[in-house]
Write a protein that binds this DNA or RNA. Structure first.
Lengths: 170, 170
DNA sequence: ACATTATAATTAGCTAGCTAATTATGTCAA
DNA sequence: TTGACATAATTAGCTAGCTAATTATAATGT
């Protein structure tokens, strides 16, 4: 996501703003700050998961399956919910099946479909990973109390509403 | 970064919290909210840059070069600042050189080193991209006024300080 | 002077994303 | 009932990251 380590100082931003008067210095630095912290969080999460032999993509698949009443779903539904293409989901399921965490069950009603089922090993993997993830996350967010969390979410929503500005065609 | 589209509802989180008592429901949803908005911002930025034939990695290299007084730097310094490995930087420079936006100049003093220089075409590419990026970003962040931006950054710093919790060996 | 160690850039081969094309199966209307 | 279209999953081949190994050059200690 935001790889850049060397975020621009105010001086650098001022220099750029001279050449490009559209620049809103505080908007830029707030934006970069947000991306920087979110990226570092994501990297930290990956590091935590990889100690358990997982990465975000595969971990989310297991969680999505555990959310299901009957612990199964289809590749296309999983792809939709996980926000990846079906092609990517095929690859994620391949890896999880290889490790025995999910299994493919062929649907006799509609032979195009495959059901993906969380195995006992998959459930037990989650029972190891989730307490670790939850307790680390609790600690990470501890400095932010409830009202601050609400404020943060409200500000994130304001920014979120502005995202279409990046896509306007004009 | 956070691909997941189907963020957990409070009901789902409560169900998970029954099995995993470490879960702090508001911490989890705030965390996911932050990652979701940041990811969508990053995707929107990529979409904006790709209209100009760039992606974040290559774009940051051009910006880092433009920050330099003499418009040049070395692959290893660029890799450090851009937060990618030298191997990745080699690839980014290859692409930029192919498009004529930067050039490699061999250093006669230390023959291990190569200088990467922003070309006129590279500068002119930035002169097209930056005003577009800056004006879209200004608009995207417009709903957040100065004091809110400061508050947001302060909260991001609190979260940032908690990130080591994800890495503790315990 | 020369062996060792450090540094700079690159190459090779890996991963998890992507799009586009392919294969198989269902659905529906003339 | 069959031709056209829709849907499900997969495969093939692309990209931008990564690590580890390689090549070349420089610096240093004995």
């Amino acid at each position: 996501m935001l790889q850049l380590r060397d975020l621009p100082s105010t001086e650098v931003l001022k220099k750029f703003a001279q050449r490009y008067p559209q620049a809103d210095i505080s908007a830029i630095s707030t934006f970069l700050h947000l991306l920087r912290v979110a990226t570092d969080l994501s990297v930290a999460l990956d590091a935590c998961l990889s100690k358990h032999g997982l990465l975000q993509g595969r971990w989310w698949v297991l969680i999505l399956l555990m959310r299901e009443e009957a612990l199964h779903s289809t590749p296309s539904a999983l792809a939709e919910k996980a926000g990846v293409t079906r092609a990517t989901m095929t690859g994620l399921i391949d890896g999880l099946e290889r490790d025995g965490l999910v299994e493919r069950v062929f649907d006799s009603g509609d032979r195009r479909r495959v059901l993906i089922r969380l195995t006992a090993a998959g459930q037990s993997k989650l029972d190891t990973v989730m307490p670790d993830y939850y307790s680390r996350l609790r600690e990470c967010m501890a400095a932010l109390k409830e009202p601050q969390r609400k404020t943060l979410c409200a500000m994130l929503d304001l920014i979120n509403n502005g995202i279409p500005a990046f896509g306007r065609t004009e």
